[in-house]
């Protein structure tokens, strides 16, 4: 369902069902970046800075533009648009991984406390 404030009458919106990306320098209210898909998620990726090598694999392979990098460094996960597909975890090359899936209910602090140990078999 569309958010209430966007449900305008027939005479109120731009003719031709045109949508704008920007409103000046910020995203328009009709940009999908204003729309949450967080409720698609059953599990979420959690980031652990300790192991990250800032390779940016998670950034390039994220289908939902939800790995936010700044100055060539991993910055944060956009939990409003992340659907929890798990690709970022799958492509993470560190051992242990710097991104791990946890249930939605787990807090990120809990997740980091319960971070998996280094997989010794993998390195062998």
């Amino acid at each position: 369902m569309t958010e209430e404030h966007l449900l305008k009458g027939w005479e109120e919106f731009e003719a031709g069902a045109i949508l704008y990306s920007f409103d000046g320098s910020s995203h328009h209210i009709n940009n999908s970046i204003q729309h949450s898909v967080a409720d698609w998620r059953a599990e979420k990726p959690v980031f652990n800075e300790e192991h990250c090598i800032h390779c940016q694999f998670c950034w390039v392979y994220c289908p939902d533009t939800s790995i936010i990098s700044k100055d060539k460094q991993f910055d944060h996960i956009d939990y409003v648009h992340c659907k929890g597909c798990g690709i970022c975890v799958d492509v993470c090359p560190t051992n242990p991984k710097s991104l791990v899936m946890f249930t939605e209910q787990t807090t990120n602090d809990e997740a980091i406390r319960n971070w998996p140990a280094k997989d010794t078999k993998k390195d062998a």
Partner: peptide, 23 residues
């Protein structure tokens, strides 16, 4: 000033757009 043409308007929107066009 990028624009999107040809968006999909399902049940909540299609009627309004067509009637605006007819208007």
């Amino acid at each position: 000033n990028p624009v999107t043409y040809g968006a999909q308007t399902e049940g909540e929107w299609h009627f309004e757009h067509k009637m605006r066009q007819n208007h």
